[in-house]
């Protein structure tokens, strides 16, 4: 069989050896005839499907890139995040190449600068080794010094996909499913507290950045390469994200003004601006006004994230303290 593999100087594998390894994983019928062997990933657009990337002496067969999944970015390809197969261990991995990006993060009407930091994600991966509430992986440098993150592939659904359509109606969801989710939520807040105590932040806390690992049954935070600089409170944006997730959970999904109007709900007239999410003004934060069985202790927490709030959570300990007071009884 003829191959035109372009061999990189750092590779210790011959094209023939790699083809044998690929055959052992994919079967001999699926061995690519032409592929590149790459050890410098600076130009990650050059890394194509079926190429082999060598990192720390391990060959990885490159598969498809991943896609962003929410907020109007559906199907937006993330070219720097690729599925890959560790040909030595025959394991599926997610590989994140270095993509230095400065982003204007839009939060409601506010805009602030965010950077994508491979070094931050690498530091956190090291920090959370063995922690059940985070994705796991290692960071290695390619021959050009780029910090490549090689992540364990998590098979499972996103938290937001799990919450939708759990029950016939909200009351049933509230009494039968929410207590379990609140327990998970508390666990996830403690995981963020673990980062904060070590001076790190998640940086992009969203409900679709929590995955339920089907194999272990653990919920895990993913994607922590965003970083930003806020000197008045380095962790304020993380707390904002935690608040949004709680509002989403208690509501059994987003309760928006548009949704209430579409269903000609009588609650629309009872809501004021003070009841709405402080940043996303179309989302109801004072959920007790819609569902009166939401206990005061829980609604009190939600109100910290509403327009009517005069006091905000400054750290995870304050949020956890209030969360510990919440009890839901049928």
């Amino acid at each position: 069989m003829e191959t035109s593999a372009a061999k990189d100087s750092a590779s210790t594998y011959s094209p023939k050896q790699l083809q044998e390894m690929i055959a052992a994983f994919l079967g001999s019928d699926h061995v690519p005839k032409r592929f590149k062997i790459i050890s410098d990933t600076s130009d990650f657009f050059r890394v194509e499907y079926n190429d082999v990337v060598i990192l720390a002496g391990v060959p990885y067969l490159m598969r498809n890139y991943t896609r962003e999944g929410r907020f109007g970015l559906d199907d937006e390809p993330k070219y720097w995040v690729r599925k890959a197969i560790n040909l030595k261990k025959k394991e599926v991995k997610i590989m994140k190449f270095v993509f230095h990006e400065e982003i204007d993060a839009h939060v409601g009407e506010m805009i602030f600068k965010c950077v994508r930091s491979p070094g931050k994600e690498a530091a956190i991966l090291d920090m959370v080794t063995g922690h059940k509430n985070f994705m796991h992986g290692v960071a290695v440098r390619d021959t050009a010094g780029n910090i490549i993150r090689i992540l364990d592939f998590i098979r499972g659904k996103r938290l937001d996909e799990l919450v939708y359509k759990q029950a016939e109606n909200h009351e049933e969801f509230f009494y039968h499913h929410l207590p379990g989710y609140l327990s998970v939520y508390g666990e996830m807040v403690k995981a963020i507290q673990f980062l904060h105590e070590q001076g790190q932040k998640h940086g992009d806390i969203r409900r679709d950045h929590i995955l339920l690992d089907r194999e272990s049954g653990d919920y895990r935070w993913i994607d922590f390469d965003y970083d930003y600089y806020q000197e008045a409170n380095m962790f304020g944006y993380d707390l904002f994200g935690l608040g949004n997730i709680l509002i989403f959970l208690v509501g059994g999904g987003d309760i928006t003004i548009q949704h209430l109007r579409a269903h000609a709900s009588s609650f629309v007239d009872k809501l004021s601006l003070e009841d709405m999410n402080i940043i996303f003004n179309n989302r109801v934060a004072n959920i007790q006004k819609i569902h009166p069985y939401v206990p005061d202790a829980l609604n009190y927490i939600l109100l910290h994230f509403s327009n009517g709030a005069n006091l905000y959570y400054e750290n995870t300990a304050q949020l956890l303290e209030d969360l510990a007071e919440v009890q839901i009884h049928a």
């Binding site: 939060v107 409601g108 009407e109 506010m110 602030f112 806020q230 000197e231 008045a232 409170n233 304020g236 944006y237 904002f240 402080i278 940043i279 994230f305 327009n307 709030a309 905000y312 400054e314």
Partner: peptide, 14 residues
């Protein structure tokens, strides 16, 4: 603004 204080924090309030 309140929104800015919520997200970014306020040194004087703290």
């Amino acid at each position: 603004s309140k929104k800015e204080e919520f997200i970014f924090g306020s040194t004087s309030n703290r």
